[in-house]
Amino acid sequence: MAEAANVRQNLQNVPSIFEISAAETLDNLIYPALSKVFDYFGLRLDFKLWGNLHVREEVSPIITWILQYLYLRKRASSFGESFYGLQRTATATGELLTRQQQFTSATLLTFLPYIERKLRSRSAQHENTYAWESQLINLFHVYNASKAIHTFLYLIKYAKSHSPLFRALRLTLRYPSEPPKEDKWTYIFLKMLEVLAFFLQFIQWWYSNDQRRKLGGTLQNPQAMPERELPKELKNTLPKNGECPVCLLPLQTPTACAVSGYVYCWKCIVTHLKEQGTCPVTSYPITIEDLVRIYET
């Protein structure tokens, strides 16, 4: 009877895959939300390293790592896992994380998604990528496939860990048998961070491309300047109907900018986007996702 009770207690301490997925979603929300906030205030690392090497990078990954390490140190769980009441324990012994496991977990939680996001962004913008970057992207494909297999095995109760990273670190997620022991100020500080989770979700929704397009966009399309107000020397340089505003030649592979509505040659707008990151006519900031291919019928 005691053995049956122990088995039942262990089963009750095992979170469902839906709770684990929700915790991972919240963890993945931290970086993009912080990026939006820091970009708004212009907070970036900007300095010369040596020679012509200039470093201009975000501070979001550093803040994300500090936040995750703080939670792993105090509660043996990530930000998202703590929000859903989960805890990382050793698979074999059930003990809490060691100092090395805390450091490794925070690093993997922060920089693996960051590197994958950067690689996919460079690939989506058709930038010149190195061979090792393509190999890394393939490795991420293999990792995601392996994670899907682990998730399925965890779902059918065949595996103790839902992720290959957890298996490599010999960790698993469980509900804590007792609340974490922490002082009053640490508890208040971590609770305030958990409340900020709703703020992070709002930031992510506000800047979501899907929501922006669904609401019709946040930028107003610029009005064309009447021809009578244009200087005479500019009238002869304006593109005619069917011409690209960049190269002033007939459109080749016409591509519309969803932010401003102007149509360009695909090659012209992509080249300008790599160099400037804006719409050539309106100077609105755009990305490769804002370009829409136009097909004639």
Rank of each mutant, 00 (worst) to 15 (best):
C268S: 06
T151E: 13
R117Q: 10
L219K: 08
L70A: 13
P164A: 03
Y154H: 06
L251C: 11
P285W: 03
P32R: 04
Q68T: 09
P222Y: 04
L119F: 00
C268N: 05
D27S: 08
E289L: 12
R174G: 04
P226I: 03
L273G: 04
R122P: 04
E133M: 05
C247P: 10
P180R: 03
I63W: 01
L251K: 13
A4Q: 12
P164T: 02
N128W: 08
V195L: 10
K181S: 09
R73K: 11
F103Y: 07
W206E: 11
K118L: 15
L109Q: 02
S163K: 05
Q252W: 11
Y207H: 06
V246C: 04
R8P: 00
P245V: 13
E116T: 08
E178H: 09
P245H: 12
E133K: 01
K181V: 12
I203S: 04
L238M: 14
K160R: 15
S177C: 00
T237Y: 14
Q102W: 00
A197S: 11
V270E: 07
K48Q: 09
L153H: 13
T278V: 15
T98V: 12
L155W: 00
T253Q: 11
F18I: 15
N28K: 13
A106T: 03
V37F: 07
R213C: 14
S134C: 03
C279W: 01
T237G: 01
N144C: 06
K214P: 01
S16R: 13
T278M: 02
E81W: 00
G85K: 00
H272R: 09
L11S: 06
A168M: 14
T271F: 07
L165A: 15
V55N: 10
W50D: 01
E275C: 12
T287G: 12
S35L: 02
T253K: 08
F166Q: 04
L249F: 14
D39V: 00
F202Q: 08
A124Y: 06
Y31A: 07
L196M: 15
V292H: 08
V37C: 11
H162V: 07
L249T: 12
T255W: 06
L67E: 03
Q101D: 14
V263F: 06
Q9E: 11
K118E: 12
G94C: 11
K184W: 04
R56F: 10
K274D: 09
L215R: 10
G261W: 03
N52Q: 15
K160Q: 15
F79L: 06
F38Q: 03
S283K: 13
G80E: 05
S60P: 05
Y84D: 00
L67Q: 05
D27M: 07
Q9W: 01
N236Y: 12
P250Y: 02
E19T: 14
I30D: 02
A22C: 06
C279L: 02
L119S: 02
S260W: 00
N144S: 10
I203P: 03
F152D: 07
H126P: 05
A92P: 01
Y295G: 01
M225Q: 12
Q204M: 04
L171F: 11
E289D: 13
T93R: 05
P239Q: 12
R122E: 05
P245T: 10
G277D: 12
